[in-house]
Design a protein around this nucleic acid. Structure first.
Length: 280
DNA sequence: CGGCAAACCTGCGAGC
DNA sequence: TGCTCGCAGGTTTGCC
């Protein structure tokens, strides 16, 4: 589920209630998710103040006053939400339960358990296994036409697959790759290395614009995604092509009955939605 | 090295 | 109603 805009939304929401507060208890209801929880997780988090909440790629980052960083990835179905009734019996998928000194309880719930929780010292983040090979932040200064062009130039894979590769650019997932390629007018089938400079420029602009718009809308809620306070995102109502197979492409003026509308294909095992008339 | 399929896991909707 | 199948926002592994 959560791609860059969804994780950014959770980070911004948590800032308002969690930042500046001390973790009074951290309970684990299982040994781990995709990877085992750190063995010393509770010991290193309990009693620490959360000084800064931020995001890198699709990872939620909670910096503690010990200079440890609590790293949370929500996988496909993860939620980090406020639990208003802490006395309630945890649901089978409430894997972590955390309480802070202002009396707020947070639950990490993740039915599919593709999520991940890790802990690292702030000085070792850059070289940490999770982050060492991740590409630039698409909303940051360093992401440019020149740099994306360089990263795509020698790739023989379709542009769709290249953009899903977190080493090329950080934070994009299936939804926003499809939407960005639509906005840029580029076919997902094009070989990444075949894009000219003008196409790469449109792609850089499209990626930034779609991510900005999605963050503005609080992310996309398809099945599982909710904000920290349980509210839904609403960018799904602005999808042009994602999950729109057979529906009218917003850029085409002809009838769906004649064109077939938005098409769905499978690339590297994942659905791609696109308009073959508007995307070349 | 590069690129793709499969695996990890649960839940849900469609179809029979 | 109840079963099976396919599919889902991500990442890693292993194979060619």
């Amino acid at each position: 589920m959560p791609e860059l805009p969804e994780v950014e939304t959770v980070a911004r929401g948590l800032k308002t209630t969690l930042e500046g507060h001390v973790v009074t208890s951290l309970r684990q209801n299982r040994v781990g998710l995709r990877m085992p929880f750190p063995v010393d997780l509770a010991r290193r988090v309990e009693g620490r103040r959360v000084t800064h909440i931020w995001r890198r790629a699709k990872y939620l980052m909670l910096t503690l006053d010990s200079d440890d960083v609590l790293i949370v990835h929500l996988g496909m179905s993860g939620q980090l939400v406020i639990r208003h009734d802490p006395s309630r019996e945890p649901s089978p998928h409430d894997h972590l339960v955390m309480t802070t000194d202002n009396g707020v309880t947070y639950v990490l719930n993740d039915p599919r358990r593709f999520g991940l929780v890790a802990l690292a010292h702030i000085d070792e983040l850059a070289t940490h296994k999770l982050f060492a090979s991740i590409g630039p932040e698409p909303l940051g200064e360093e992401f440019s036409i020149k740099m994306l062009a360089a990263r795509l130039s020698n790739k023989n894979t379709p542009i769709k697959s290249a953009l899903l590769d977190q080493r090329v650019v950080a934070g994009l997932g299936n939804i926003y790759v499809c939407e960005a390629l639509f906005r840029a007018g580029i076919s997902p089938l094009r070989q990444a290395g075949s894009l000219n400079r003008a196409s790469v420029k449109r792609l850089v602009d499209a990626i930034r614009n779609v991510l900005d718009a999605a963050i503005e809308a609080g992310g996309s809620s398809l099945k599982d995604f909710v904000h920290h306070d349980g509210k839904l995102g609403y960018f799904q109502h602005q999808f042009a092509v994602y999950d729109h197979e057979g529906l009218a492409c917003p850029g085409c003026d002809c009838e769906v009955a004649q064109t077939g509308g938005v098409e769905r294909i499978v690339q590297a095992g994942r659905s791609t939605f696109y308009c073959p008339r508007k995307q070349r």
